[in-house]
């Protein structure tokens, strides 16, 4: 097992004790293996344990049980070895020194990661060009946009050219333009060009579907399913999904008479409510579902689509990936 140059977890456990006898098993016996050069996704809603897992792998948390090997180094026995091989990128803006410039930030982190002094200048030049930040190299970080800050965070993560990357919710809070840039960069540059081993966590199913070769569904600290996106979708017993997009509040109780016909996924996004019913015969359910929705909300569109990873996740866990949703 120690030979792996990717990542390998075996029965990893992390428990947070809140009060006496009150504990949360944030990571509960997680096992999987990520091959060298693989882009692997960990998909789950907020609170599923994804970030805790990333922190265990980056040695910021000490696991309570099990083993985790990163690039051939055990996180417990050789944390410094693990850190040398890792680059950790998190979503959000506060991971840089805002009073310093991009060059000063990168210079500092290059020193922390032991990049030889003779190579640092060239490396920083390369990364700033790569992230299209060269013109901003002497601006204070506080004056950069959110997207530029995230680009600089990526440059910081790559400053020591680590073979393994842990990327935690990389597009969180970014506008669609920068989110698209970051996704494309991860797939084409980091994965295809630079051949990095990547563990990406996200709660955006489109992001995981678009980027990852294999995906693990994580929920309540456990891995519920692990496969390629294509094969995960094949796990749905129904091959079609009836989707009604509407405006208004609907709860799952309204569909209590429909449960026997398929899996319901009720979600809200950007002010719209989406009612998705996985079924083998959408035509049979069409009038019934639309009638229920029309009694409670304004119907905007009705369509029949293929199952998404979200549908599979709901089918397997009974929970949604989104924060503001109810499902059954």
């Amino acid at each position: 097992m120690l030979q792996t140059r990717g990542i390998e977890l075996k029965n990893l456990v992390k428990v947070f004790k809140k009060k006496k006898k009150d504990e949360v098993r944030a990571v509960d016996g997680v096992s999987f293996r990520i091959a060298e050069g693989e882009l692997f996704g960990l998909l789950g809603p907020n609170g599923a344990g994804k970030t805790t897992l990333i922190k265990c792998l980056s040695t910021l948390l000490i696991p309570d049980d099990g083993t985790a090997i990163v690039g051939g180094c055990d996180v417990n026995a050789d944390p410094l070895g693990v850190r040398r091989k890792l680059g950790v990128l998190t979503g959000g803006e506060r991971s840089l020194y805002w009073k310093l410039t991009p060059v000063e930030n990168l210079n500092y982190f290059a020193a922390l990661y032991g990049v030889p002094r003779s190579e640092t200048k060239e490396r920083i030049h390369y990364l700033l060009e790569l992230m299209d930040l060269f013109d901003k190299k002497h601006e204070r970080v506080e004056r950069l946009s959110s997207g530029m800050k995230q680009k600089l965070s990526i440059a910081r993560t790559l400053v020591h050219d680590p073979p393994i990357l842990l990327i935690d919710e990389p597009t969180l809070g970014l506008d669609p333009y920068f989110a698209r840039f970051i996704r494309t960069f991860i797939k084409t540059e980091l994965h295809e060009q630079l051949k990095k081993t990547i563990l990406l966590t996200t709660h955006y199913m489109d992001e995981a579907d678009e980027l990852c070769e294999r995906i693990a569904f994580m929920y309540n600290g456990k891995i519920k399913a692990l496969d390629t996106p294509h094969l995960l979708k094949k796990r749905m017993p129904q091959e079609q999904v009836l989707e009604v997009k509407c405006v208004g509040d609907i709860d799952d109780q309204a569909f209590s008479s429909m449960h026997e016909y398929g899996t319901l996924n009720l979600s809200k996004q950007d002010g719209f409510t989406y009612v998705r019913m996985s079924t083998e015969n959408p035509e049979d359910l069409l009038s019934g579902v639309v009638e229920i929705v029309r009694d409670r909300a304004r119907v905007l569109s009705v369509s029949v689509t293929s199952p998404t990873l979200e549908d599979v996740f709901v089918h397997l866990t009974g929970a949604s990936l989104k924060d503001d949703t109810t499902q059954q």
């Binding site: 922190k55 980056s58 040695t59 910021l60 410094l80 850190r83 040398r84 890792l86 950790v88 998190t90 506060r94 991971s95 840089l96 020194y97 982190f109 922390l112 990661y113 032991g114 910081r156």
Partner: peptide
Amino acid sequence: TLEHILSSP
């Protein structure tokens, strides 16, 4: 930046 410092070698 604390976590980024502490996850460096």
